[in-house]
Write a protein that binds this DNA or RNA. Structure first.
Lengths: 169, 169
DNA sequence: TTGACTTGACTAATAGCATTAGTTTATAAA
DNA sequence: TTTATAAACTAATGCTATTAGTCAAGTCAA
């Protein structure tokens, strides 16, 4: 029979939360299990009880970033339409990147196969953009192309801003 | 008096060249001084005679990526104009990213202050885009905005393609 | 209340990494 | 041939993630 566990001092959520703060403060380079453990008042091996190593932690952070971004875009565009919605969307996108540069930066590096949850979260982001474009009368194939285009542009701006503009003033 | 040095077996160029191949093959994670030294038939501390550590190597690779990209765009657009030039530009941009995913990926992460050479190389890239847009009659402030927009879009597409499309088919 | 089970924390150890210091050695000029 | 230069080396350090194994605390059943 399975007996109940003991009350947990630390939780996966707390670890991810602290990691999110850390990566936004110090960037991707500064995010180490050693430093994270130090902040949580714990030894680094203990983190493995809540998270599947550094790799797993990064997966969780990417998921969190996509989810948060999707929610932010939703909040910004709800109740608006057309140009108004588009402006709000762009503003919110930029705002999120500025507020969570480290977290957002993580979403760029997922060259590998993404998990189902991550894909869902990404699709949710796309869906918001999609909804805004419907307000312009775009449907079907056109909407897909426009969505891709808009996402690329927003993303391009965001990344370039993060990167210091590539020499562009 | 300064006496001449001995003939060098390895050169900074050879190190950077090998590093470029490595990062395109194995990605940013796979680029380590240890592996690089192994490929060059040398012990890793020897690399410090040619390159300023891993950090310095990454700087050189970023510079190389920007320079190569600029040249590729130039080759693609020379002798063309308007829509023709724009199509060639986009195609070349995409082609470079596909051919050198690791190298291109490095250019994204330069949050820090960039050196003068790096800025110059970045400006050269922008200049090509700029030239293409002049073919559309865009000048001055309009050209600046259009350049920024086009670069963002190209970059956005490229990065999203690298990242697997963010859940977008 | 007692005892067993679960589980999250720990310590210890390993392997890989970049990096520095100091030494050896090959080469090219004098 | 001698000497200076610099590129290679070895050795060592300190950081990292990670695994294995131990300990202790809490919870439920008897």
């Amino acid at each position: 029979m399975t007996r109940p566990p003991r009350a947990r001092a630390l939780s996966p959520e707390a670890v991810i939360e602290a990691a999110a703060s850390l990566v936004d403060e110090r960037g991707q380079e500064g995010l180490t299990l050693a430093e994270l453990a130090k902040r949580l008042g714990v030894r680094s091996p203990s983190l493995y009880n809540h998270v599947d190593g550094l790799e797993g932690l990064l997966r969780e952070l990417r998921l969190r970033a996509l989810t948060d971004l999707g929610r932010a875009l939703e909040r910004a565009t709800v109740g608006r339409s057309s140009r108004d919605a588009l402006a709000a969307l762009s503003h919110a996108y930029r705002g999120y990147v500025r507020e969570h540069p480290g977290l957002y930066g993580l979403t760029v590096r997922s060259t590998e196969v993404q998990g189902a949850r991550e894909r869902e979260a990404g699709e949710a982001v796309v869906e918001v953009v999609f909804a805004v474009l419907r307000g312009f009368g775009l449907e079907g194939e056109d909407a897909v192309h426009a969505t891709r285009y808009l996402r690329s542009t927003l993303h391009g701006f965001a990344v370039l801003e993060l990167a210091g503009g590539f020499g562009l003033e």
